[in-house]
Write a protein that binds this DNA or RNA. Structure first.
Length: 963
RNA sequence: AGGACUAUAGCUCAGUUGGUUAGAGCGCUACCUUGACAUGGUAGAGGUCCCCAGUUCGAAUCUGGGUAGUCCUACCA
């Protein structure tokens, strides 16, 4: 083995082998365990969030697989309608071609081409991350099977009356020319204005103050062209008399009523609100209550309708009104119209004032432009009905969120859910399986033939399929079951559904998790007809942020490709990567500066295992993770530590024993050879059991951080720091018996082999690489560690006595080292150390000293370790305490008097503080009376120990001070 | 406006049902290249657990109220 750990040398070949040998496929044996990958956008690339997400899913998958579960982790990608279409449109745009120039079919072909071209990026990344997904079952949301499932789902929902088509106000994206759902709208804080406009009263009416106009305030003056009323609060005394009267709407000179409605806030502005039912969601509702006309003034570009025509809801020229829109607005962009209207109001003396105003602007999450509420025909899913069982499933615990608090977020959204607009005016996606005849009548069916036969439509009837496609999230809502073969009742569906756990970020709970639950429970039933949940648990993790705590995003230029942490990247390459395809050159300069600042040396290659271990160790509950390069470097070093520990073990055990001699039960030799375990052997085996317990519990509770920490501490702080050191005096002892040597060799191998299996879900590559070398020494064989059993703690291997003995031994060694360190005694110097104790327990101390001579001498670098029967004969010494026993390092020639006094004083101060604290507690009668006996006893023991230690050290102090 | 989460060492984070002398890694200081490992070893320094009040014999931990930050939902035109 190389002297240092080289991740790139081992990672790629192992993944290939695993995949080729089919190790990722379900074994077909044991209880099933299934995770569905949250499908990333097929034309994108994985970022750190995906890396994190994958590390956790693979950890769970490998853990359960090793536990013997019939494990399926299924991969796949999403077609990501809008995002993908935008990318390809932009590419075409660079060549000066629009999708309309191309036409629908060729454009879709183009996207498929692009998908084939870029689709490999993600699968390659998933492979490099070591994810043990079953590639033979890879799916895509637009592949044939899923397309069938989508059609089936749509048709069935329609039959069940849960999908309907209707003309409503929708969130219209004037840039992308499509409707979007509420969730795709981001409300952004922006500074704007509140225009106060005067609306003249008709028929000579006057306000209470004698004015002949009302003042309305608006943030969108251009919508006044579509006003249908002015509303006041019914109890507002100022305007009581005017309710039922009319306004002459300026510019268009249309008469509109003054109405009363509770919705109006009397305190805001003048208490008068202009009502534009066709261009505002609240006004739309009010319009329905008061039977107001819907006056559509915008076309799909969010410009004023051409020719200044006002259209009503059905798109026809509105004849109910005396005036159409003034010609000067015809075809104007909404923001230009706004300016013009304000100007004209001013000229007419109807502009009361303009106030600064902070408002939330609705913007499309993809396009970034201001969303316009617009009247259109769209398809909707009746979410309220579907939500009911979905809410109940979480209430009843059939689905459990981890951490629990996300259930509240889920409930609050689901209990107030709005119908889901699922049609999109795009080309890339699942075209809606609905057909129209020439009268506009709509028919829903799986295909045109079915529609014709179901509705007795002859070939003379011309049918035209709906041009719209479905929201991407419609198909991903079917992900868990459609990918297993639904609507067919496949074996896989039966075996793996419900899936076990969904691993995802909180940002898509509404987009995806909630909708999956609704759809799955509607469509998938078990043999008794009981709705199945898509997954039993949802593990919700935080976002991965950069070192400054900022969200990683392309536009901020702070994204990291997980592969760049695995393979490393030069600074210049990273800068290029981050600033490529930037829309604004100014931004590119900023990003370049920031990148050079954060990674002045570029990024080192850390390897997949270190990256994954870092993700796991940062995966605490319910909080975002700030990615810390320092920690990753630490875990790369951890890999190196494991590597070198393995080198040591192999170096000392290979070609020493018969193959298989180290296997299995520790108490007897496989080949009848005698085996004797040292104290250290028994201790490390005992510690291993604790570690196995801790890790199993942590993983069962999704505490990857605690599991990682337990693993780290066991391997580094116990196995490497202590056990390997303790093995040396045995292995290098010329007088050691074969049985002793064999015992230590066997323990070295056996414990490391177990640790590798424990670590495998976190660090698949290094563990496999080492395991292949080590397994034969443990008498094990197998193609791969990934199908070996996950270690399980055995209570009978916990050795309390050995743990106590080693604690004592560590205490002695640490005491001597402390004196050495503080007294500046060269580590190379062999020293003589004396031990003594007046306490009753001295027999045990003495026995331990005798038993552990060789360990002590080696680890504390002692010349001699001598028990002093009569402590009064001790020469002047520096002192450390282990329990009641004094560890004495004679001062002569070694130790500076003042330094030792200083060191003792420090210890005495510490003890003094402790004694004050504890005796204060024990002096409090209320504490003694109320606290549990065990707690009081513990405090007493603590005090006794501290007092006795203090006395001993004080005695030493006085003795030295007296010199 | 409502809600959630966070606040512990210089930095990144643990701290399970209240009882620890409050921990880890990185960084820092000193020493050490000893036959697995300098991507290392040994020793050490470093904390008013955000603030205030309360409950309790006892609070980093529980309750209430602040402050600061992050986020979600809704929204007043």
């Amino acid at each position: 083995m190389d002297k240092t750990y080289q991740p790139d040398a081992i990672e790629r070949s192992w993944y290939q082998k695993w995949e080729q040998q089919g190790h990722f496929k379900p074994t077909g044996e044991g209880d099933s365990y299934c995770i569905m990958i949250p499908p990333p956008n097929v034309t994108g690339s994985l970022h750190m969030g995906h890396g994190f997400n994958n590390a956790i899913m693979d950890c769970l998958t490998r853990y359960r697989r090793m536990q013997g579960r019939n494990t399926l982790w299924q991969p796949g990608c999403d077609h990501a309608g809008i995002a993908t279409q935008m990318v390809v449109e932009r590419q075409l745009g660079a060549q000066g071609v629009s999708r309309h120039d191309l036409g629908r079919k060729p454009f879709i072909d183009k996207i498929w081409e692009w998908k084939e071209e870029s689709g490999g990026t993600i699968t390659n990344q998933i492979r490099r991350l070591g994810s043990s997904v079953d590639w033979s079952r890879e799916r895509f949301t637009m592949d044939e099977g899923m397309s069938e499932a989508v059609k089936e789902a749509f048709v069935r929902l329609h039959q069940d009356g849960l999908i309907y088509r209707g003309k409503r106000l929708v969130n219209w994206d004037p840039k992308l020319h499509t409707a979007i759902s509420d969730l795709e709208v981001e409300n952004v804080d922006e500074k704007g204005f509140l225009w106060n406009l005067r609306y003249p009263l008709a028929d000579g009416a006057k306000t209470a103050e004698g004015l002949d106009y009302l003042v309305v305030a608006t943030t969108r003056p251009e919508t006044m062209l579509g006003d249908a009323a002015v509303a006041v609060h019914p109890d507002d005394e100022r305007y009581q008399a005017l309710i039922g009267k009319e306004i002459i709407l300026p510019l268009v000179n249309r008469r509109i009523p003054i109405i009363a409605d509770d919705y109006v806030d009397r305190e805001f502005g003048t208490g008068c609100v202009k009502i534009t039912p066709a261009h505002d969601f609240n006004d739309y509702e009010m319009g329905k209550r008061h039977d107001l006309p819907l006056i559509n003034i915008l076309d799909r570009d969010a410009a004023i309708l051409p020719n200044g025509q006002v259209f009503s809801i059905d798109g026809t020229l509105n004849s109910d009104y005396d005036a159409a829109l003034p010609d000067q607005y015809a075809g104007l962009d909404r923001f230009d119209a706004r300016k013009l209207i304000v100007t004209e109001f001013e000229q007419l003396g109807l502009l009361e004032k303009i106030d600064d105003h902070n408002l939330k602007t609705p913007r499309g999450d993809r396009s970034g432009v201001v969303i316009e509420p617009w009247l259109t025909d769209q398809w909707y899913v009746d979410a309220k009905t579907l939500a009911k069982p979905a809410i109940k499933a979480v209430e009843d615990g059939d689905i459990e969120f981890v951490p629990k608090q996300y259930e509240n977020m889920y409930f609050s959204w689901m209990r107030d859910i709005q119908d889901w607009c699922i049609s999109r005016q795009l080309w890339w996606g699942h075209q809606i399986p609905a057909w129209y005849d020439e009268t506009g009548k709509v028919y829903v069916g799986r295909d045109e033939a079915e529609v014709r036969s179901d509705n007795n439509l002859g070939n003379d009837v011309i049918l035209r399929q709906d041009e719209d496609v479905l929201d991407t999230w419609f198909s991903s809502a079917l992900w868990t079951f459609s990918t297993l073969g639904w609507p067919e009742k496949t074996k896989f569906l039966k075996t793996f559904h419900s899936t076990d756990v969904l691993v995802t970020g909180f940002d898509i709970i509404f987009f995806w998790v909630a909708r999956m639950i609704m759809m799955t429970m509607h469509f998938v039933k078990d043999d008794e007809g009981v709705p199945q949940v898509p997954f039993k648990q949802v593990y919700v993790h935080g976002l991965v942020r950069d070192s400054l705590g900022h969200k990683m995003s392309k536009s901020k230029g702070n994204v990291l490709d997980p592969l760049d942490l695995i393979d490393g990247i030069e600074l210049e390459d990273l800068v290029t990567k981050r600033t490529a395809n930037m829309m604004q050159p100014k931004l590119a300069a900023k990003i370049e500066k920031q990148t050079r600042n954060e990674f002045p040396e570029g990024i080192n290659a850390y390897g997949t295992d270190a990256l994954r271990f870092t993700f796991c160790s940062l995966a605490s509950t319910g909080r975002d993770i700030k990615f810390d390069m320092g920690r990753m470097e630490g875990y790369r070093n951890f890999c190196n530590k494991i590597w070198n520990a393995a080198r040591y073990v192999l170096m000392n055990t290979e070609q020493q024993d018969e193959q298989g001699d180290c296997i299995g039960a520790l108490d007897c030799g496989q080949n009848g050879d005698e085996v004797e375990l040292s104290l250290a052997d028994r201790w490390i085996i005992s510690r291993l059991q604790h570690t196995e317990q801790t890790i199993e519990k942590a993983l069962d509770e999704f505490r990857f951080d605690l599991a990682a920490q337990a693993l780290f501490e066991f391997i580094w702080n116990e196995y490497c720091d202590w056990y390997l050191e303790l093995s040396k005096p045995v292995l290098w002892d010329e007088n050691a018996s074969e049985a002793q040597l064999r015992g230590t060799r066997r323990t070295l191998v056996r414990v490391l082999e177990s640790a590798l299996r424990l670590a495998h879900p976190f660090m698949p590559y290094i563990t496999e690489e080492i395991w292949q070398r080590l397994a034969p020494l443990a008498g094990l064989s197998g193609d791969t560690i990934m199908h070996q059993p996950y270690p399980q703690a055995e209570a009978n291997k916990i050795d309390v006595q050995a743990e106590a003995d080693i604690d004592w031994l560590k205490g002695v060694i640490l005491g001597v080292r402390n004196i050495r360190g503080e007294m500046k005694i060269s580590p190379a110097k062999h020293i003589n150390v004396l031990f003594s104790s007046k306490a009753d327990s001295s027999a045990e101390d003495q026995a331990r000293l005798n038993a552990n001579q060789q360990f002590l001498k080696k680890l504390a670098n002692l010349e001699s370790a001598t028990w002093l029967a009569d402590s009064t004969q001790a020469p002047l010494s520096a002192t450390a305490l282990v329990g009641e026993m004094e560890v004495l390092v004679p001062m002569a020639g070694l130790i500076d008097k003042d330094a030792e006094l200083g060191r003792l004083q420090k210890e005495l101060d510490k003890l003094g503080k402790l004694i004050n604290q504890v005796s204060g507690k024990l002096g409090n009668a209320k504490f003694v009376d109320n606290a549990p006996d065990a707690v009081v006893a513990k405090e007493r023991a603590k005090l006794d120990e501290a007092n006795s230690a203090k006395a001993k050290l004080q005695e030493q102090y006085d003795k030295i001070a007296a010199l």
